[in-house]
Amino acid sequence: MSDAVRVESLHKTYDDTVTALAGVTAGFPNGTFTAVMGPSGSGKSTLLQCAAGLDRPTGGRVFIGGTEVTAANDTKMTKFRRQRVGFIFQDYNLLPSLTVEQNVVLPLRLAGRKVDRRRCREVLGHLGLGDRLNDRPEKLSGGQRQRVAVARALVTEPAVIFADEPTGALDLRSAQDVLALLRAVVHQYGRTVVMVTHDPMAAAYADSVLFLADGRLAGELRNPTADAVAERLAHLGDAARVGVAA
């Protein structure tokens, strides 16, 4: 199985003093759902930002769909990201002045691509938002807003969707609905999802969990359960506290 995303020897430092990533190599296969977890400060959000082309690593390479995005200049990277990458954020990142439909097609407009309104409405219909096309985000619940964000990520038909704490602002029921939706995106639509989360329950929806600690890979768990993820995180947290104490 080929990788939708691959990072090789990824390093990221800030101000030449803080090391966020220290040589991470990992692959995210096509058509899979991977959760990335670790203690606070482990580098998980930095890994997502570098892998998605939102931030440049200090060293190493990033490949999306076989294309090395780290070799591109900023303009080309931005263009590639708009065409091949979808994003879902904790705070939805919807524009309040736009309707649901306008928010969903915005990435297509920014990329200079033709807007297929039938495709857009089809996606929104599948996500239970077919009757909310002309509503603005303020009229939607948190769960509905995140569904709009999922639709926006899907409509560009990206090589990979990066989700950064997508359920962090949702109640339990809405979170479960969105996570089930992300699983369906992978297993029914064949997309690839990479999700950063701190929640073991959320990670249990993924096919596998990649653990980070101190900017390095600290293991992988396939077919995760919430209990197994929580136990692994507890061990990582204990190790981090011991390191600080030492």
Rank of each mutant, 00 (worst) to 15 (best):
Asp15Trp: 12
Val123His: 01
Leu181Met: 14
Leu210Trp: 11
Glu231Phe: 10
Asp199Cys: 14
Leu98Ser: 01
Val100Ile: 10
Lys12Val: 09
Arg118Ser: 14
Arg121Val: 08
Ala169Thr: 06
Thr25Ala: 09
Val18Ala: 14
Thr34Phe: 07
Arg136Lys: 15
Ala180Glu: 13
Gln146Ala: 02
Gly65Asn: 06
Ala240Arg: 05
Thr17Glu: 12
Gly190Val: 05
Leu48Ile: 05
Glu8Ile: 13
Asp207Gly: 07
Leu124Glu: 02
Ala26Trp: 11
Asp177Glu: 13
Val104Gly: 02
Lys12Ser: 10
Val36Met: 06
Val178Asn: 01
Ala149Tyr: 03
Phe33Trp: 10
Phe33Val: 08
Ala20Tyr: 05
Leu170Cys: 02
Pro57Gly: 08
Val148Met: 00
Leu94Tyr: 00
Leu106Asp: 02
Asp116His: 11
Phe28Ala: 03
Pro158Ile: 06
Leu127Trp: 02
Gln102Ala: 15
Val194Pro: 00
Val85Ala: 05
Val105Ala: 06
Glu8Tyr: 08
Thr167Cys: 09
Leu21Ile: 09
Pro200His: 03
Thr156Ser: 15
Gly23Cys: 12
Phe162Val: 03
Ala175Asp: 02
Ile64Thr: 06
Leu98Tyr: 08
Phe80Asp: 12
Leu98Arg: 04
Thr46Lys: 04
Gly215His: 03
Ala206Pro: 00
Leu182Phe: 09
Val155Lys: 14
Leu54Glu: 07
Gly27Cys: 09
Asn93Gln: 15
Arg6Pro: 07
Asn73Pro: 10
Phe211Arg: 09
Ser42Ala: 12
Gly31Leu: 06
Tyr92Cys: 03
Val194Trp: 01
Thr34Ser: 11
Asn134Trp: 13
Asp214Lys: 13
Gly219Ala: 12
Gly130Leu: 10
Val100Thr: 10
Thr75His: 14
Val123Trp: 01
Leu48Cys: 06
Leu181Lys: 04
Met37Pro: 05
His126Ile: 10
Arg118Leu: 09
Thr197His: 04
His126Thr: 14
Gly237Arg: 15
Arg81Trp: 06
Arg119Ser: 13
His11Gly: 08
Val105Asp: 00
Asp15His: 14
Ala22Gln: 13
Val229Arg: 03
Arg81Cys: 07
Leu179Cys: 04
Gly142Thr: 04
Leu47Asn: 13
Ala51Glu: 04
Val209Ser: 04
Cys50His: 03
Ala169Ser: 15
Val178Asp: 01
Thr75Asn: 15
Met77Leu: 15
Val123Arg: 04
Asp116Cys: 12
Phe63Ala: 12
Gly215Glu: 03
Gly43Ile: 04
Leu21Trp: 08
Ala234Lys: 14
Val100Ser: 05
Ala22Thr: 12
Met77Asp: 12
Phe211Ser: 05
Gly60Phe: 02
Val209Met: 05
Leu179Trp: 01
Ser208Phe: 08
